[in-house]
Design a protein around this nucleic acid. Structure first.
Lengths: 148, 148
DNA sequence: CAACATTAAATGTATGTACATATATTGCAG
DNA sequence: CTGCAATATATGTACATACATTTAATGTTG
């Protein structure tokens, strides 16, 4: 669906403004679709993203700093998202022995199990599947250029 | 900067995954840049977006329903954002005489003044200025295709 | 017209974001 | 070794999101 119809705005100031609004709208659309897949599993999108980072480290622990570094949104509050995951027994948190300021965060077996279940669901609805490989590459290159 | 370097992840599962992550990351990047421009004026990005919708209606009033319809993120809570704008005297809220369930929301002179000041700042840093017109159009078309 | 559904907005609760500040530990200069 | 800066994380506050529920007004149907 064209963005004009999606947000019921027939005309834009210029193509740049239109692309910007489409960028924000489409990203929200994609994220909401993804979040709906997690909801049934009792975790949110940010919680899922952190679990994935922890799985990537497994069996090594991660610190909060490492999580922040790897998260897409650097300024968000990893500490409190880990709180929620800890409550659900999906991660463990122990003071790092070699640096008592830091905290070692590890994904639990329950966390790994949950991720593998979610993986299966996500594989059924692959991301951006309407785009060809060439289009996906082109999109990524255009996005890189925005941030140049 | 390439997304690989931006988030320090050298390799992705496939080009679709890479494009998705770039989409989320770049949109966050753009939005944060914009939000920083509003901060100095004491309003947030959602508040700015609602003010713009109200200016588009001016001098006609808008209802909460109309705001939700026009907002990029449909499920957000327009009512409480209007609360904040009302506190700052940027909008007024009066019960609609012809339908006492609805509320007429209008932008004030102070609101219009604020928007015109912000417009000037934004015009100095145009959006997506790194893209040519052709690239902006191409980007918008690719985004439309994602949502098909 | 009375009962009930629908509509418009507000409110409640949990979560997350953004930014500042606090707390504890470590490293280092003198 | 002491004092102080730097580091790692946690906490506080304001705002926003997501979703369910509530309240009030209006429509509708028997």
């Amino acid at each position: 669906m064209k963005i004009e119809d999606a947000i019921k705005q027939p005309v834009f100031r210029d193509v740049h403004q239109k692309a910007l609004i489409n960028l924000v709208y489409t990203t929200g659309w994609v994220q909401q679709r993804n979040a709906n897949q997690f909801k049934d599993f009792g975790i949110t999108l940010p919680q899922f993203n952190i679990l994935r980072i922890l799985r990537g480290q497994h069996p090594k622990p991660a610190t909060v700093n490492l999580l922040i570094e790897r998260m897409l949104d650097k300024t968000s509050n990893a500490s409190r998202i880990v709180d929620k995951l800890e409550l659900k027994k999906l991660v463990t948190r122990t003071v790092c022995p070699s640096n008592r300021r830091a905290v070692d965060i590890c994904i639990t077996e329950a966390g790994l199990d949950l991720l593998s279940k979610i993986d299966k669901v996500i594989d059924l609805n692959p991301v951006l599947s309407n785009l060809t490989e060439a289009e996906a590459t082109l999109l990524s290159d255009l996005l890189d250029k925005i941030r140049d």
